[in-house]
Design a protein around this nucleic acid. Sequence first.
DNA 1: CGGAATCCGCGTCGATACTG
DNA 2: CAGTATCGACGCGGATTCCG
Lengths: 111, 111
Amino acid sequence: MNKINNYEEQCAFQEILKIIGGKWSMSIIYILFSGKKRFNELQRTVPHINTRMLVKELKNLAEYKIISRKVFATVPPTVEYSLTEKGKKLEPIINDFYNWGVDNLYEYPGK
Amino acid sequence: MNKINNYEEQCAFQEILKIIGGKWSMSIIYILFSGKKRFNELQRTVPHINTRMLVKELKNLAEYKIISRKVFATVPPTVEYSLTEKGKKLEPIINDFYNWGVDNLYEYPGK
DNA sequence: CGGAATCCGCGTCGATACTG
DNA sequence: CAGTATCGACGCGGATTCCG
């Protein structure tokens, strides 16, 4: 009854992780749960990320329609990022994931 | 009411991802949902993983008590890996994650 | 069988500087 | 403000070989 564990499922898993398993993706999505954010806001909120990485991740997430990018033709330019419906569906999952981590990982201080 | 998005939470997130956000961790855990597995079984089931990476991941996961490692003093040696209670708690989360990926990512064929 | 050890390329990531 | 461009290093991860 358990169709888990076949080779194709594993490959699918790896594809999924390639998209949102990166170093920064989850952090960015996590931040966007609280609403749309501008580029600089994101950069300030995600610890240690740099411009290039943030641009790259945002582009990637937008490509898969997890986030949407809205440009306002103002001076200076304004760009807003927000979650799409797909992205919003991740909220409970990522929250569970985060909570699991806090509950189960943090009693191990040392590397 | 949303305490999300502060700097420390973000750092915590990055710590968690460092532990189970690697290229192979989730795949291995996913496989172990269906029961204990031996080293070679895992290596055969996870696509493209090699010995070194598998050893490394198993060691890491065991260190954080997500999986447990049982050695049987037989000849030839037998080692069984299985999920701990902590690891089992991940099952619904990773399943949700996987399902989300299949539902939302697979209509994008291209790179 | 289940690892450990070594060697090494290649891609990722980071820092910096620059642009519309 | 919101990126783009370029460069260089470092470390991840792959292949191979050896060991108990």
